[in-house]
């Protein structure tokens, strides 16, 4: 969608912002050999393991990102949970 916004009248993102986003992706890949495909695979496997303990864990809903806090790289996963209905496990 952002493509269309950019294309039709919207202002193009400034190049420094683009450079920073691209570098973030590249550096994660360089440091951890973690490609976008591997991240997708990791989500599927995370959902598999978590589904043994929790109802309704959907790989498509998991968001995995790499953060940098307190001088440490940190893998951050957001896993939305749905409350199971009675008797629905």
């Amino acid at each position: 969608m952002s493509f269309f916004r950019e294309f039709f009248g919207g202002r193009r993102e400034r190049s420094a912002e683009t450079a920073k986003k691209r570098l973030m992706m590249v550096l994660v890949d360089d440091r951890y050999k973690l490609t976008p495909e591997l991240i997708e695979q990791m989500k599927v496997e995370l959902a598999e393991v978590l589904s043994r303990y929790l109802p309704h864990v959907d790989a498509d809903q998991i968001e995995v990102s790499l953060l940098h806090e307190d001088d440490n790289d940190r893998l951050h996963a957001q896993i939305p949970l749905k409350r199971g209905q009675q008797g629905d496990v």
């Binding site: 400034r14 190049s15 420094a16 450079a19 920073k20 570098l23 973030m24 940098h68 001088d71």
Partner: peptide, 16 residues
């Protein structure tokens, strides 16, 4: 300042 070059802060955040 025009947003067309990475700032020192950007570089520091990336390299930590």
């Amino acid at each position: 300042s025009r947003g067309e070059m990475l700032s020192v802060e950007d570089v520091l955040e990336l390299l930590a």
